[in-house]
């Protein structure tokens, strides 16, 4: 589904990713771990297509196509979702209006009929209930005045509504208390299925207590230095990353 081959990137001429390779198939959950500055968030940016991340070498195949040829919005419409570490606020823009525009942009791309306001509202209400999120989320501005935890829950809400094929969750666990973490994890676990792939980018092992990964990769200096199953995460929890005391 997603095949990252020997990717090198630089941001403002600083090299960040340095020969990263990773292959992901439907149904798999991959955890990417590593110390600060190892390039974890850059990986999410590269997959999303953010302009300031220049790919200098390597290739990424997504569903048999060259991902790097697609614009940011095309990638999204083709099923790539990124849950951000710091979701941005858009004051005054209604959350449900935003989400419906998002869903319909994707539908239009797929040459499907647009979702009506009524159907949208029904789906949104059901989803929000399932995720144990307050109904008021729908009528608030996009992330406007949301606490850190609320923003993360909003990302999970959006992910569930958009129903992507691959979800890349960048430090979705950071800044969450244990209850919020459980809610977020529940949302991710419900999303999980044989046809979906998930990439969890995280600094800490505790998220993996709630979402069980199939593979754990350790990122250091822009490439994967070790891969294993979930026991690798547990080991890291005890020994820490080599060049990072946390």
């Amino acid at each position: 589904m997603l095949n990252i081959k020997n990717i090198h990137t630089s941001i403002n001429e600083t090299k960040i990713l340095n020969g990263l390779s990773l292959e992901i198939s439907p149904g798999e959950v991959h955890a990417i771990m590593g110390p600060n500055g190892s390039g974890k968030s850059t990986l999410a940016k590269v997959l999303a297509g953010q302009d300031d991340c220049e790919v200098t070498e390597g290739e990424i195949q997504y569903k048999g196509e060259n991902l790097l040829d697609l614009s940011i919005e095309e990638r999204s419409r083709e099923g790539i979702f990124v849950g951000f570490q710091y979701p941005v606020e858009i004051p005054g823009l209604n959350n449900s209006q935003f989400l419906r525009a998002s869903i319909n942009a994707k539908r239009k791309h797929k040459e499907e009929e647009e979702m009506s306001a009524v159907d949208f509202l029904k789906l949104a209400r059901e989803t929000i209930e399932k995720l144990e999120i307050p109904q008021t989320f729908l009528n608030r501005g996009v992330n406007e005045g949301f606490s850190g935890g609320e923003k993360k829950r909003n990302e999970i809400f959006q992910m569930t509504m958009l129903n992507p094929e691959i979800a890349i969750l960048d430090e979705t666990d950071s800044g969450l208390d244990i209850d919020a973490l459980k809610i977020v994890a529940k949302g991710v676990n419900e999303f999980k299925s044989e046809s979906k792939a998930i990439i969890l980018i995280t600094h800490y092992q505790r998220l993996l207590d709630y979402i069980e990964p199939d593979y754990v990769h350790v990122l250091s200096n822009g490439k994967i230095i070790e891969s294993g199953d979930k026991s690798l995460a547990q080991r890291l929890e005890q020994t820490g990353y080599k060049d990072d005391g946390e």
Partner: peptide, 17 residues
């Protein structure tokens, strides 16, 4: 960037914002 990652084109994004 946030809007685009959600599939919304630049022009629509500006209008919405």
């Amino acid at each position: 960037f946030y809007c685009k990652q959600r599939g919304i084109g630049e022009e629509d994004a500006v209008n919405m914002i």
